[in-house]
Write a protein that binds this DNA or RNA. Structure first.
Lengths: 221, 221
DNA sequence: AAGCGTAAAGTGGTCTGACCACTTTTAGTT
DNA sequence: AACTAAAAGTGGTCAGACCACTTTACGCTT
């Protein structure tokens, strides 16, 4: 009677136990999971139930399966997710513009958070980026943005952003020295000083520059 | 030899066919899907394969299952997704604070977008909310926030927000007349006038009030 | 004829065993 | 030591059997 709370579906319970097993056995992305038959024995459930759980995780892109080989903890991204979710839930796949707007939202918020926290503005990564931009000049844009969001400390936001970034791949990935470089330096310097307003302005300028670059690219084609 | 491209896994193929079936038969959210046995016959596959596909979609929250009742196309939210995804990918489930911060981010951005667009500030829904708050006083907070994001026009942001909102269910769902009401009226009025700064300030005040309410609630226990 | 209660049918939940296709390992031969 | 073929391991799929639960249908009572 009192066990009604625990009366979850078995395959969901397996998903949960699978996660615990991964943690406990220190299975890392790319590593092999126990075979279906072994799992079914260890968890004392039927193989079909194990398969239902594994198939679910596969659709989510969390594991990869090779027939005859085994089941492996996934390492990379999972593009199917976005596609399936959007085709089922939204019924209309999100427009390019929506993805773009949403990822920009997360980036701007990261800047706001960082500028408001002295511990974050003093992070060594800003010096590092400074150096890379000024000397190497071969920095990928998304890398900088990623660092911003990582620094903001919101891992959930980072995860969402990575999904969006993977979805809206930018044609021009690396910075163009001429115009972008000075703007980026202003952005980073503003961040280091905690100048929120200035940082956001530089960010907007940066996005504007990127946009113009894209237009020029398209025209030359 | 040339069929190697189509050599997809059966359960993925079923997921695809299931989607087509839903479209073709005009199955709407809440409607019942054919039974597992029927599906297995119609698609000429084993019932276990059908189940693997259905269980996958269930984990995604796209369908709901009632034992003895049937399988239904999901209508509402799906909590599990965020939880499972984050627990597997992030390896650390997002803290309550992260979920909270992220959903607030989307709410604030919606306010910014709305205030910057005359077409949006003039939306009839603001009058409607105005009326509900002032007269009925029984409005659910999340409902107001949801309208904000809907109005902002970013369906993707809305989708993400709904996930987060479902995850961080607020104990106090309805507005408390005494303190919140005037703040909310300021918020809505500011939006109608396109006063971005004032609207955001009112929003922050609102969140502050809610936070205080929660603290008081906890103390009285 | 209407209402009710029970039996039957329908449906998801789970397990078992079997077979196939493919990969990895093992063992044996050269 | 290198190569090859057999064996073991593993995922992929199917069929059948029960169980627990819900919905439907039927027959009885009123």
């Amino acid at each position: 009677m009192e066990t009604k709370q625990e009366n979850k579906k078995v395959f969901l319970e397996i998903v949960k136990q699978l996660k615990e097993l991964i943690d406990k056995e220190h299975i890392k992305p790319g590593d092999k999971l126990p075979s279906e038959r072994v799992l079914s024995e260890r968890l004392a459930v039927g193989r079909s139930s194990v398969r239902e759980a594994l198939r679910s995780l596969e659709l989510l892109g969390l594991i990869e399966t090779r027939q005859g080989g085994g089941t492996f903890l996934s390492s990379g991204q999972n593009i199917q997710l976005v596609e399936i979710l959007s085709s089922f839930i939204l019924r209309v796949s999100p427009s390019v513009d929506e993805v773009h707007t949403t990822r920009r939202m997360h980036e701007k918020e990261a800047i706001r958070v960082i500028c408001s926290d002295k511990n974050l503005t003093a992070l060594p990564v800003w010096e590092s980026l400074f150096y890379k931009i000024e000397v190497e000049s071969e920095v990928v844009r998304d890398h900088i943005l990623r660092e911003l969001i990582i620094a903001s400390g919101n891992r959930l936001s980072l995860k969402i952003w990575m999904q969006l970034a993977a979805y809206s791949a930018t044609p021009l990935k690396k910075i163009t020295t001429k115009k972008e470089k000075p703007i980026l330096l202003v952005l980073l310097k503003s961040i280091q000083l905690g100048f929120k307003k200035e940082a956001l302005e530089a960010y907007e300028q940066w996005m504007f520059t990127i946009k113009n670059n894209l237009i020029n690219e398209n025209q030359s084609n």
